[in-house]
């Protein structure tokens, strides 16, 4: 194990000030530094009542070295939906925090590691030392009161010699859909794996208007095989998706293979729904590569 301790975006987080009156404090307590862990502490961010927001915090990587990470614990307060570590093509000043709810704001951001998901024994993600961290937090404040948030990502870190194989996340996401009011919409889109890999995990992502989800993978369109089928889709899966694990027998996928994502929704409102209010994505982990795959279809 290596000794990597605390890196803070918010230098005041070690001695937090009380939340203002009339604000619900859902900040995560900053854990004490521990050998074998690297803690990334997000900023304090207030979310207004009845508001859904994704905010992104740009945090300069001061470690100067690659992080070798077999597991990440994403710590969020109540009303948290997800926290994820992204990398950016366009660096911003350290400490920059901004709303990144829109599809366009995600254009330069790519996932490097997904919190709370297991990898096969001996596998780890490599996070390059020269990328700026972007910590993305998604909250849905369902209350009539502002909430004060602060998330923490706790990375388990190991040395290169402890790694048997590298892993990297993949995501196949549709951004350009629109769900007409009071109608069922059935959307399929394809992405390609650029290299030979094995899949250790496949997961779905939709929101509350989803009714059906399917991921198929195969070397050609005629050879697609269902690897994840969720029917019916339940509202609970928005936050706790049904993950298909292949930890003991990662599923081989050859370069050029297709991953087809199929989402079906019923929009029971009188307004059209678009990203990010609804989403359609397959995500997961690949082993045998340290290069993330991020396929977005507009």
């Amino acid at each position: 194990m290596v000794m990597l301790l605390l890196a803070c975006a918010d230098k005041e987080s070690a001695a937090p000030t009380p939340a203002s009156p009339g604000v619900i404090d859902v900040r995560v307590e900053v854990p004490a530094a521990e050998e074998g862990y690297f803690d990334l502490v997000g900023p304090e961010y207030t979310i207004e009542p009845y508001t859904e927001v994704m905010y992104c915090s740009y945090i300069t990587n001061t470690t100067g070295t690659d992080l070798i990470v077999p597991y990440v614990d994403g710590l969020q307060g109540e009303y948290g939906h997800h926290v994820v570590l992204l990398a950016t093509d366009v660096e911003k000043p350290d400490g920059t925090t901004e709303d990144c709810s829109s599809a366009t704001s995600m254009a330069n951001l790519h996932a490097y590691v997904i919190a709370d998901l297991e990898l096969p024994a001996g596998a780890a993600v490599r996070i390059p030392g020269d990328v700026q961290f972007v910590m993305q937090s998604h909250y849905v404040n369902t209350t009539g009161t502002p909430i004060l948030t602060r998330d923490v990502m706790r990375f388990t870190v190991v040395t290169e010699s402890e790694v048997e194989q590298y892993a990297a996340p993949f995501a196949a996401t549709s951004l350009g859909f629109e769900l007409p009011p009071m109608e069922t919409t059935d959307l399929s889109f394809d992405c390609e794996f650029p290299e030979d890999i094995s899949m250790s995990l496949v997961g779905p992502h939709m929101h509350e208007w989803g009714t059906y989800f399917e991921t198929l993978i195969g070397p050609t369109e005629d050879e697609l095989e269902t690897v994840l089928l969720v029917d019916p889709w339940r509202t609970e899966y928005r936050d706790d998706p049904p993950i298909q694990l292949f930890l003991e027998n990662p599923k081989p996928v050859s370069a050029g293979s297709i991953v087809r994502t199929r989402c079906v929704w019923y929009n029971d409102t009188n307004e059209p729904i678009t990203f990010p209010e609804e989403m359609c994505a397959t995500f997961g982990y690949m082993v045998g590569t340290d290069q993330p795959m991020d396929c977005r279809i507009n």
Binding site: G74, D116, L117, G203, D240, L245
Partner: peptide, 8 residues
């Protein structure tokens, strides 16, 4: 978010 020990 996310799982995932399905059964323990």
């Amino acid at each position: 978010m996310f799982i995932w020990l399905l059964w323990a």
